[in-house]
């Protein structure tokens, strides 16, 4: 007779960074989102970043729920608005490392305008997009990333629209770091996130990940193992690829790798440089130590209030 399963008595290796009091999470078995979170947390632990100063902002969707499980200051906002919320948060304290977790619909449909403008400004945000080619949370409707021919609940005869090529959109809008992996590429994804976290500027990492429940099932693509096997057989690593060549077709090859890694002054660098030129010493650089002191003059502790 098989032994009754018993608790292994060990802690989850990432429990420090997870809200264990909120586990079990809502994600389906074999969903790719959890894997991406795991890679992110490993990457975060491998960086020297101050965890106190690291914050997560999400919009709405299955991916949007990431903010609810990570044990950092975490903000679950409105559909599509994670990036502008994160912009305000970062600009209210430039010491913060601000990470945005977004679904493909959240980021490129309802939030598409914010995405291109944050990239254009080279706002100092790290954006991780879980692209499952579909609106997972709402039951599998077409997304701007749905490949031509794929079935969704709102394209029951197949999707006929041209999809977005997200790395190309990010790069041509001005993102200074652009990469793509699948949720099979655990170590590479971790390294990439780690590298992006250490860069200043707008970083965009797309992770192709399975939505087993509403994308794979409707398109008869199999389950967990089949989806990983597909990624293994169809991913092509091509670092430095021209982003205009990395679009994805239905069940076609997936070009992965680091596509863009350039240096460019951020929104705040530009502002500080510009104002310093105009105002000289009268200008206190935004985000500097002196600026932080000015900010604290407007605050009190409840103990003293």
């Amino acid at each position: 007779m098989p032994e009754k399963p018993r608790p292994c008595g060990e802690e989850h290796p990432r429990s420090k960074l997870l809200r264990m009091d909120r586990i079990p999470h809502i994600w389906c078995p074999t969903c790719g989102i959890g894997t991406v979170v795991n890679c992110f947390l490993e990457a975060l632990l491998a960086t020297p970043l101050n965890l106190k100063k690291t914050v997560i902002v999400s919009g709405i969707g299955c991916t949007g729920r990431v903010a609810g499980y990570v044990n950092l200051d975490s903000f679950h906002t409105t559909h599509g608005r994670a990036i502008p919320f994160a912009t305000g948060l970062y600009l209210s304290n430039p010491d913060l490392n601000v990470v945005v977790f977004s679904g493909d619909g959240d980021l490129s449909a309802i939030g598409g305008n914010h995405f291109i403008h944050a990239a254009r400004r080279n706002q100092n945000l790290k954006v991780i997009c879980v692209n499952n080619f579909i609106y997972g949370m709402t039951g599998g409707q077409m997304a701007p990333t749905t490949p031509v021919g794929a079935k969704t609940s709102t394209t029951p005869f197949g999707c006929f629209e041209h999809p977005f090529n997200l790395p190309h959109l990010a790069a041509s809008s001005g993102a200074t770091y652009v990469a793509r992996w699948t949720s099979l590429h655990l170590r590479r994804l971790k390294w990439t996130i780690q590298e992006a976290l250490s860069r200043r500027g707008f970083a965009f990492i797309e992770v192709i990940a399975p939505c087993s429940t509403v994308y794979a099932r409707r398109n008869k693509l199999g389950t967990g193992f089949d989806l990983m096997k597909f990624y293994k057989e169809n991913s092509v690593i091509r670092h430095g690829a021209d982003t205009k060549d990395v679009d994805i077709s239905f069940q076609g090859k997936i070009i992965v790798g680091k596509f863009v890694d350039v240096q460019k002054p951020t929104f705040l660098d530009q502002l500080n440089e510009g104002y310093s030129k105009v105002f000289g010493d009268k200008y206190v650089p935004y985000g500097s130590e002196k600026w932080h002191k000015m900010k604290s003059e407007f605050q009190v502790s409840a103990a003293k209030a």
Partner: peptide, 12 residues
């Protein structure tokens, strides 16, 4: 959205 983010970061 940015205004709410900034409020959480400690600015009026």
């Amino acid at each position: 959205a940015a205004v709410i983010g900034a409020a959480w970061g400690g600015l009026k």
